[in-house]
Design a protein around this nucleic acid. Structure first.
Lengths: 374, 374
DNA sequence: GTGAAAGCGCTAACAC
DNA sequence: GTGTTAGCGCTTTCAC
């Protein structure tokens, strides 16, 4: 028989100074802690009556089930997936591509009953993120989203030898990868403009390396870019133009610190200002492309008559833009689904989806046309 | 002196079957576990030399710092904030208002070096979410975003007696709240249309209760709505119309299961179909309003000439819509900031921002005009 | 069906 | 500066 003594303020999980634990409930009912644990984790291993008394006592004492941390320590798993991002977290929510990605990822993790932990990693002086963040995250695995090649945070995460999936960049041997063929996709974008007859190009790029710059990036910096996505897209553009006999040295690449409409406007200002500017602008992202268009139309230039603009990503706003944006489509939500499924299957030690790049396709809309005679 | 024996495969954190722990490093160097712990947590309490040997040995053995779970158990804190959402997680990423909110919230939590855990809570048959999710989340506090009034998940979270903040709904005595005065704000939206001369109204609403419906909701269901945001906005509309002498019974309220452009189109189909329809539609969200506009223009009706439409939220797409949407502005990112600051200050047991509703304002754009004579 | 023993990995508090 | 003790709350294993 339980002693059943009333506790003052028993309604709170931490009243009276002492937290209510499994052991406390067990003591109260003169059963073992194991039995109380079983009541929550293996209800079939108890008589219904005892289970009822346990829950009743728990309710009375303000106990709301096994402490998740004690549980995780003992079971050696947390049922949480960590997400590592190359930028401050709040940037992710301002980036439509990242949001679509997280939407896909979260639908898989939630389905698998796993939490999604957005890992906070303060940015250091060099633009790199605090690697200790990866060591301190209580997770069963990582989804690493779009990191630069030699980011210490990435190394720290992989060092933990937990299941991990890398998305977009960088490609690391031995680590499952989800992404597209950026070089080939960028190439099709440039070829589209070449077919239309353009000969004078400029590029609006987002960051090439964590040590962010704002200005024209020379070919050396381009090839050394720590962000492989940037490097590969530039390579794709370059290959297409050089195949058409155009010297890459004549193509200014404006590097913005980030990927936003505002930066796109700034890039446009630098690229389009002088009299005889480019007739076509290749943007590494839709956000940048939209900024370019906004700047151009704001200056009385018309798109595509005066300048053609091509983006990359096909974010939701691309189709609705004025003019609708010609861009390289990639399925960001699908990336999240795929990354999630790969990681979940690894956590369960089952077979999951295989590797191989996701598809892209050029979507021709209203922001490109043959160059206008000037 | 350390024994320094080489271990096979020492490069992995869990090689040789046995995980590498603090104690293992301590043993290797013939120091106490405490000293190794101090090397990571209180570097100033060791000689630089010893610290160096410890890190060197850790590196050699593949130890990457104290296990986060063991650490959390001992310290009785996780440095993680849990986010509870009224819908499946992936919906949050498809809702521009929620995304802005998370952007604001994450910037505060990251600044405070706290992780953000998106808690997975499967949806039960009644539309309610699994309350066990709240009991199993390893967090120091909760941000509860837009729950229905009697959601078991909400009760389960509050039962844990952790610091918590509720955003948008429901208002619970004793729990810090962040939100706007929905009733007053909705009222201004309806008054705007009344001033323009409208007399025939209809409402496009998102869910009133977790047991989702799709169709006209009668006044009883309206008043019983478990989502206080829905209830209050409807009350605001109603108060304005009744003050103008219009009977609420003449105003159809179409309840959609969710808040999306697609649902808005469906609502418009039901509300605008018959010959003599409303001249103005009040939508409980911009997403719904945008759907209404899309349906109307797709049917050859022009907005605002044939129907005026007012939204609620002022999401980024509202200003760029065609026509630009008249709507009630509220600052979702600010909500996230405020909720984050309130919670962080509570976790630190400091004073934080006080209560009080955030401001809203009616933004008149192109989707409203005086009613056209028919 | 129920329980005893053991220990998951770590650090606060306090010696020395 | 470094070490000792103790225990955070839980569940695996195995016995009964």
């Amino acid at each position: 028989m339980g002693r059943n003594k009333e506790e003052a303020g028993a309604s709170s999980g931490r009243s009276g100074g002492r937290r209510v634990t499994l052991a406390r409930i067990a003591e109260e009912l003169d059963v073992s802690a194991m039995t109380v644990s079983n009541a929550y984790n293996h209800p079939d291993r108890l008589s219904g009556v005892l289970r009822g008394r346990i829950f009743e006592t728990a309710r009375r004492l303000g106990y709301h089930g096994p402490d998740p941390v004690g549980r995780s320590l003992r079971r050696q798993r947390t049922d949480v997936v960590g997400v590592l991002y190359s930028n401050p977290l709040s940037y992710a929510f301002d980036d439509p591509a990242a949001v679509s990605f997280l939407s896909g990822l979260s639908s898989v993790t939630e389905e698998a009953d796993l939490g999604l932990l957005l890992v906070p990693a303060a940015r250091g002086v060099s633009g790199e993120r605090d690697p200790r963040a990866a060591a301190q995250a209580a997770v069963d695995g990582f989804v690493i989203y779009s990191m630069s090649d030699r980011e210490p945070l990435l190394a720290a995460a992989l060092d933990r030898r937990l299941p991990a999936v890398v998305v977009d960049q960088p490609f690391k041997a031995g680590v499952p990868f989800v992404g597209v063929d950026d070089e080939a996709a960028a190439r099709t974008a440039a070829e589209h403009l070449l077919h239309l007859g353009h000969r004078r190009f400029a590029v609006a790029s987002f960051a090439l390396s964590p040590d962010v710059r704002d200005g024209i990036a020379n070919p050396v910096r381009q090839e050394r870019a720590a962000f492989s996505v940037s490097r590969l897209r530039l390579r794709g553009y370059r290959a297409a133009l050089e195949d058409a006999g155009l010297p890459w040295s004549g193509v200014p690449v404006y590097e913005c610190p980030g990927s936003s409409k505002e930066f796109g406007q700034r890039a446009a200002g630098a690229l389009l200002s002088p009299g005889r500017g480019p007739t076509a602008i290749l943007a590494l992202s839709d956000q940048l492309a939209l900024g370019v268009i906004a700047w151009a139309t704001g200056r009385g230039l018309s798109v595509p008559e005066d300048v053609s603009v091509v983006g990359f990503d096909d974010i939701p706003a691309a189709a609705g833009a004025d003019p609708p944006l010609t861009t390289v489509h990639q399925d960001h939500a699908e990336k999240g689904l795929r990354a999630g499924r790969m990681l979940v299957s690894r956590l369960r030690e089952e077979d999951g989806p295989g590797a191989g790049p996701l598809a892209t396709r050029l979507v021709v809309r209203g922001s490109t046309s043959p160059p206008h005679e000037r």
